[in-house]
């Protein structure tokens, strides 16, 4: 489904991504972890073209992200993204946040879009808040709406960029529960996160990045039981200790 081949990216002189390659197959859940500055957010943003890369190729369902002829907006309509800071549109009510892209990008009718929006809000447990404005919701609630907003586009894959890093501890679980449910329903997911509990529960593979490189890319069970590189071990021990 998502094919990342030899991606390299520079910000000016700074070599941010160094020859990264990996695959996310249909229905797979891949967790990307690593210290800050390792390039994991940048890598995931390259998948839907929010960041450009200078070398390599990324294919999403056969479509080349970096190719000149590719209509990025069409690609992005098929791949959902959830951001660290939720990024709900503050001037639109919750239900309108869910509908606006369905109407303007997919061309659905208002009735169709609203029905889908309400169904998804129900799925994430927020059906009582359809008319509220984002600023009236807690962080956890906003992030669940953000997930629903991305799902409303019926994506073939979902990208998560540190979805729980900006949340207060007591709200992390409600968001992870939604993500677990999504994974169990067979969604193709690429998740940048520090939440190793989530990884242990639903991930198929775990990727460890450090300094712009993919250092480890292993099956979940292997990653957590059989130690690989020293770097990954250090990182894991620091994270898992609290």
């Amino acid at each position: 489904m998502i094919s990342i081949k030899n991606i390299s990216k520079w910000y000016g002189d700074f070599h941010v991504l160094k020859d990264c390659s990996t695959e996310v197959n249909k229905g797979e859940v891949v967790v990307v972890c690593g210290p800050s500055g390792s390039g994991k957010s940048t890598l995931i943003k390259c998948v839907n073209g929010l960041e450009v890369f200078q070398k390599g190729e990324i294919l999403v369902d056969g479509v080349s992200v970096g190719a000149r002829g590719t209509k990025l907006s069409k690609l992005r309509a098929r791949v959902g993204m959830v951001f660290q800071h939720f990024e709900l549109f503050p001037h639109l009510r919750v239900i309108d946040n869910l509908c606006v892209a369905q109407l303007k990008v997919l061309g659905r009718s208002k009735a169709e879009a609203t029905e889908k929006g309400l169904k998804l809000l129900d799925m994430v447990g927020l059906q009582a808040h359809t008319q509220k404005f984002p600023a009236q919701l807690s962080g956890g609630q906003q992030q669940r709406v953000a997930i629903a907003r991305a799902l409303a586009m019926d994506p073939i894959a979902m990208l998560f960029d540190e979805p729980t890093s900006a949340l207060d501890p007591e709200m992390i679980k409600e968001v992870l529960d939604v993500m677990v449910k999504l994974a169990q329903e067979g969604m193709t997911m690429m998740v940048v996160t520090h939440e190793m509990g989530f990884a242990k529960q639903v991930a198929d593979r775990v990727i460890f990045m450090d300094n712009g490189q993919i250092v480890e890319d292993r099956l979940k069970t292997d990653f957590f039981s059989k130690p690989g590189t020293d770097r990954a071990q250090q990182f894991l021990s620091k994270i898992l200790s609290h």
Binding site: S73, A77, F89, V100, V105, L106
Partner: peptide, 14 residues
């Protein structure tokens, strides 16, 4: 912030 623009683009808006 850059996030709002990114969120809009990620949904497929031009």
């Amino acid at each position: 912030g850059a996030g709002q623009r990114a969120a809009g683009l990620a949904l497929g808006f031009n």
